[in-house]
Design a protein around this nucleic acid. Structure first.
Length: 166
DNA sequence: GCCAACGTTGGC
DNA sequence: GCCAACGTTGGC
């Protein structure tokens, strides 16, 4: 099965690309996804080894793509925070025997040589169909087409060799 | 801080 | 099943 490409959003003030780099094994579980569409992508389509663009949202002038991560868990598994009453992500209605919310693990992979801002993504004609540049697109986990993925990586300064090594 | 866009909830 | 109300996201 060929690798799939994704884009994941995170607020750098909450958990940024640098924070993932500092985690043990540079890997962290991606809890707190509470959107069915995003969950379904994780559950049905995301597999270990898939590559995701790490995108910083709510970051003022620094909104944009900062680097790459890989899916480090075999597949999606239950998000424990849905059963934790002290968590912001607690969901009283999620059945214990059939957890509503899932997550995957992401591992830090490679930083871009330069930030690729949202403005830049929007100004690149070849990316006009990419989900992240579309108006009102709020999904925090989105599929990315290979051609779009490669263009974003090039904008981020990755060499052809680095792209091939992924 | 504003507000447009969107997803979810719940009354009916 | 409709839809108004509400909450959240996220660019600006």
């Amino acid at each position: 099965m060929a690798k799939k490409f994704w884009l994941i959003k995170s607020e750098p003030d909450v958990f940024g690309f640098d924070d993932l780099e500092k985690c043990e094994n540079q890997t962290e579980h991606w809890d707190g996804i509470r959107n069915y569409q995003a969950r379904n992508f994780m559950r049905d389509d995301m597999k270990k080894g898939d590559i995701a663009i790490f995108y910083h949202s709510n970051a003022g002038p620094n909104v944009g793509a900062v680097g790459l991560v890989t899916v480090a868990s075999e597949s999606a598994y239950p998000d424990h925070t849905q059963f934790d009453e002290s968590s912001n992500y607690y969901d009283a209605k999620s059945p214990k025997d059939n957890p509503r919310w899932l997550m995957v693990d992401f591992q830090w992979k490679m930083p871009f040589k330069r930030l690729v801002t949202l403005k830049e993504l929007k100004e690149t004609p070849e990316l006009e169909d990419m989900l992240v540049v579309k108006r009102g697109q709020r999904l925090s986990i989105q599929p990315v087409e290979k051609k779009h993925f490669e263009i974003v990586c090039k904008l981020g300064g990755l060499t052809a060799k680095e792209l091939k090594s992924l």
